[in-house]
Design a protein around this nucleic acid. Structure first.
Length: 502
RNA sequence: CGGGGCGUGGCGCAGUCCGGCUAGCGCGCUUGCUUUGGGAGCAAGAGGUCCCGGGUUCGAAUCCCGGCGCCCCGACCA
């Protein structure tokens, strides 16, 4: 990975008395404005989230990144269980023939399959694909399990990883192997299956708003952007700092496409053999990339408090052993109070780095709140509280040591809310109505366009070719009025978001 | 799969054009002392099949041939 050295000359140090400007500059990230892609690449590694692996296109998720992922998973898992879903595990390897059973599915996934050809030193009679997604094998099993309307609905979630042979990869955003959950459900009726699809999309939306502090639009994907084999694909779409769009979760309705391919049939109440209606849905580890790109700033990661592996870090400051003893005693007490109050707190007692280093270090890692205390604080009964969403000294306030747990908890709530507010305002100020094709082309250079569209593939294709933007989704919330397609001028009932996307 | 760049201690690089003697530098790491309120200093250390294979040569990180790998930019995709 190339570290870009040319940024040194542009860097304005906020610290005036630092002796070695060059060294300081090298330690900084490139700013987002200078090189967003490089900012991201360096940040993911330096914040200790993930590392490059010896396997092409695959990442190693480090403990700090995985802890974040676990927090994401546990919230979602709880929601899925509340809505009647259960977890199960299916094989990583799938017979190749399974992919040929659903025509669109094979067309969509065949180019990106990793295939196992040998086992135990022998060439296999039937090659096995490393799952790129599990509709096929789960469909196969569902066919065995579903015989009666009493067996439905079948609501199963699998947590694991899948593999798609991606040509260009980027940590978290697009890796050959990635982590996710995939829900696969089978229902007796179309209504019920569609309800399920929307129910899950609502959970995804709430996750993004309440937990990740990322505003999203729920909507329907166009025909060309639809999942391979789906009749309806819905998605939640988020805007990153560079104004590109990221599909952050999807929920699909398959109708009977997969149940016909895999013969998932049951006897309904009228004793008629009927194909089941199926859905599938997923949020992947790319959501971590979304959090980085929505909230991160030029000092590093900014994690939403509700998901942050470490919500608060206690940093003691002292000059000598006498001071150390006094400071450590109080710092330990505050740490214990925070821990007892259920705050995910870390005590940074490293003695080989300076406090200034620690401040920058925890800012790089995105810890939402920092509790600093030195000899002066011990005397005054105060601590310095630094909130990550306002980096540097401006985010610092001095508060009483009394009731520190409540103070920190309130601040965490406040940070969580302000991240969502900031992200929402940023997004909304970068979405513009486009009434003409020229306007649209201009808008998507640096933002999203919201425009009427006739929903024809031809117009969509034209936008893609000439504006290099794709349709993101047709949001559920639509204006009352109708309009004219931004491309061809034909009457249009619904508006769509156009944007450059990841 | 097209275009570009690069493979040299853990990381980032110099050296390669024009072959030469103990392969350097910065960061990091280890130990010690002094430090610690916004990226500390000094000292002493540890650490290298110069991507791989072959060739040319008295001699190859450097030249030649052939591989492999990685990163970036495009097309495609969660």
């Amino acid at each position: 990975m190339a570290i870009v050295r040319g940024f040194q000359k542009n860097y304005q140090s906020p610290i005036t008395n630092y002796q070695n400007e060059d060294k300081m500059a090298e330690d900084k990230l490139p700013t987002r404005a200078e090189d967003f892609s490089e900012w991201y690449n360096q940040l993911v590694v330096r914040a200790d989230m993930a590392d490059y692996s010896p396997v092409r296109g695959c990442m190693v998720v480090k403990p700090y990144g995985w802890a974040l992922w676990e927090n994401i998973c546990s919230w979602l898992d709880a929601e899925f269980k509340k809505t009647g879903h259960v977890n199960a595990a299916f094989p990583t390897l799938i017979p190749m023939s399974f992919f040929e059973k659903e025509k669109e599915h094979v067309e969509g996934f065949a180019p990106e399959l990793a295939v196992v050809t040998h086992g135990g030193g022998q060439e296999l009679e039937e090659k096995l694909a490393v799952r790129p997604t599990s509709e096929t094998i789960i469909g196969h099993m569902y066919a065995k399990w579903v015989k009666s309307w009493r067996d439905l609905p079948l609501l199963i979630v699998q947590w694991g990883s899948v593999m798609r042979w991606e040509l260009r990869t980027k940590l978290f955003l697009r890796t050959a192997e990635f982590y996710w959950h995939e829900g696969h459900t089978a229902h007796a009726s179309e209504e019920e299956a569609k309800e399920e699809m929307y129910r899950i999309l609502d959970i995804y939306e709430r996750f993004c708003l309440e937990e990740a502090a990322i505003p999203v639009f729920k909507g329907t994907k166009s025909e060309t952007e639809r999942f391979a084999g789906a009749q309806i694909t819905t998605s939640i779409e988020a805007m990153m700092w560079d104004k590109r769009a990221l599909q952050s979760g999807t929920s699909h309705y398959f109708g009977d496409n997969f149940s016909k391919a895999f013969e998932i049939q049951f006897l309904n109440k009228d004793n008629k053999l009927t194909y089941a209606q199926t859905t599938s849905w997923a949020i992947s580890s790319r959501i971590i990339g979304a959090m980085i790109m929505v909230h991160g700033d030029d000092n590093g990661l900014v994690l939403p408090p509700r998901l942050a592996p470490i919500q608060a870090v206690v940093v003691p400051i002292f000059k000598n052993d006498v001071e150390k003893e006094k400071v450590m005693e109080v710092a330990n007490r505050l740490f214990a109070e925070l821990k007892a109050a259920g705050v995910r707190v870390k005590f940074d007692d490293r003695d080989n780095v300076s406090s200034g280093f620690k401040f920058n270090d925890w800012e790089m890692r995105g810890v939402p709140v920092r509790v600093e205390m030195g000899p002066k604080d011990v005397e005054k009964g105060t601590v310095a509280l630094a909130r990550r969403d306002k980096p540097g000294r401006e985010g610092k306030t001095f508060v009483s040591q009394d009731g520190i747990a409540d103070t920190v908890k309130t601040l965490l709530t406040d940070v969580q809310a302000s991240l969502l507010k900031r992200a929402t305002e940023y997004r909304d100020s970068n979405i513009h109505d486009a009434k003409t094709f020229d306007e649209l082309k201009k808008v998507v250079q640096d933002g999203w366009a919201f425009a009427y569209w006739c929903e024809s593939t031809e117009c969509e294709k034209k936008v893609k070719e000439e504006a290099k933007a794709t349709t993101r989704n047709i949001p559920f919330h639509q204006p009352d009025a109708e309009g004219k397609c931004v491309v061809c001028g034909k009457p249009s009932k619904r508006k769509v978001y156009f944007a450059k996307a990841y």
